[in-house]
């Protein structure tokens, strides 16, 4: 009887695994009226998944190129380099990963010109002033377009045209 139960449970797991897919597709309704729905919305996922997915993004950027990403993390602004990061910690809170972002309307990023030639600037973006930054260390939700750029022979990932969501 026990053996039968084990076999049944194993089959269930196997069935679930059989639904293998390609690139992840996730879309939800927008949480607020300010921003449209994100293609990859990580605010509905568990902390474990978010951390893993960010890592996956960094090692497999081609799957996410140009997609809108929405993620929740901790604000970190580096005043020396004028660069903004969204810091996401894993479930044990001992490891964290930084996701850099550039606010919509901000043209001060040192590598902005080196960004993907797929022009992601929306019409009228040059007239927009960037949103004010929340306090360092506070919780933020940002949404932006996923891109990569070369920084000193290393490929880095960044969210462009990012907006703070409320």
């Amino acid at each position: 009887m026990k053996t039968l139960q084990y076999i049944l449970f194993l089959s269930l797991i196997a069935l679930l695994l059989a639904s293998c897919g390609g690139a992840p597709q996730k879309s939800t309704t927008a949480n607020d009226t300010n921003t449209p729905a994100a293609e990859v919305d990580m605010t509905t996922m568990s902390k474990t998944m978010v951390y893993s997915e960010i890592n996956f993004m960094r090692s497999n950027p081609e799957r996410y190129m140009g997609k809108t990403i929405r993620v929740e993390g901790i604000m970190e602004y580096n005043p020396l380099l004028h660069r903004r990061y969204c810091v996401i910690a894993d479930a044990t809170a001992c490891c964290s990963v930084q996701l850099e972002f550039v606010l919509k309307g901000d043209h001060s990023h040192p590598f902005l010109n080196a960004l993907d030639s797929q022009n992601m600037q929306l019409p009228g973006a040059n007239e927009i002033t960037p949103q004010p930054d929340p306090q360092n260390g506070s919780k933020i939700v940002i949404q932006g377009y996923f891109q990569t750029f070369q920084e000193r022979e290393k490929q880095s990932v960044i969210l462009t045209d990012a907006l703070y969501c409320h």
Binding site: L17, C20, P24
Partner: peptide, 16 residues
């Protein structure tokens, strides 16, 4: 949620 998560390659790798 689970079925959605199972579509991610890194989740499949983790399970295997």
């Amino acid at each position: 949620n689970l079925l959605d998560y199972l579509q991610f390659p890194f989740v499949q790798y983790a399970l295997i």
